[in-house]
Amino acid sequence: MSAVPALSPRGLAWLRALTGQEGLAVTGPRTVRVADAPLGAETARYIAVVPDAGNRFPRARQGEVGVDEAWALASHVRATVAADQGVRARPIVALVDVTSQAYGRREELLGIHLAAAAAVDAYASARLAGHPVIALLVGKAISGGFLCHGYQANRILALNSPEVLLHAMSKQAAARVTRRTVEELECLGERIVPMAYDVHSFARLGLVHKLIEGINADAPVGADVERVRAELIAAIADARGGSRDLGQRLRSPAAQETRAASIEVRRRLSEQWHAS
């Protein structure tokens, strides 16, 4: 079994800093926090997933997205879309610090794959309905946790901080599954960009709209918070001015270089789509 990681409060810290609220909903799990707060000239809805040592699902106490979290995300995002029918679709900001999805027997029994799909569906549907959906990576963004909370965003912003970590699997788990040591995995990441965990490498994949430098991610205060707000406002404007799909991710200079294969596949697929 893996060592228990320290509780990571970054999602909550940033929710408090950006909204001045705790975000506890009347119903639903304490792990999904939602708050509305002014952002520029409008109001944005902020959503964070936070750890809870008392979570009724023991496998979802360290900041994982489990069954309850995923359904709650889906519910809050869909409620936002429903509330804005016929009016300007407000921005949705996902504050991302998620350890992973929850790994457990009862999770599988209860269909965590569907719960997670519902969260993905809600965020993507919000994006398609015209909500600027912005993911702000303030901590870990690992695997299914990130798919559920952030990966469907129009724009992904990230703090350039050593604790902003991205991967398809936690380091320890990936090391076990691939029969490598954590050190070997880290070496591999230096050579193979998609294998790296750091946010700088992630940005090289063209997936990050803006890497925000020089922010103390653990203690969001004062000028740092204002700078992040300004970046959120800029990203929202950019999203509103762009298309509602994820195509922008492949158009960045970084993607042109590192995701050349993704682009080539689409180009040649398009050429062959209609029979000659």
Partner: peptide, 16 residues
């Protein structure tokens, strides 16, 4: 796993 973050990225694109 050998394509880790890119695998996850394209899965998000498939879902979208």
């Amino acid at each position: 796993l050998q394509e880790a973050n890119l695998g996850l990225a394209v899965i998000a694109e498939i879902q979208a």
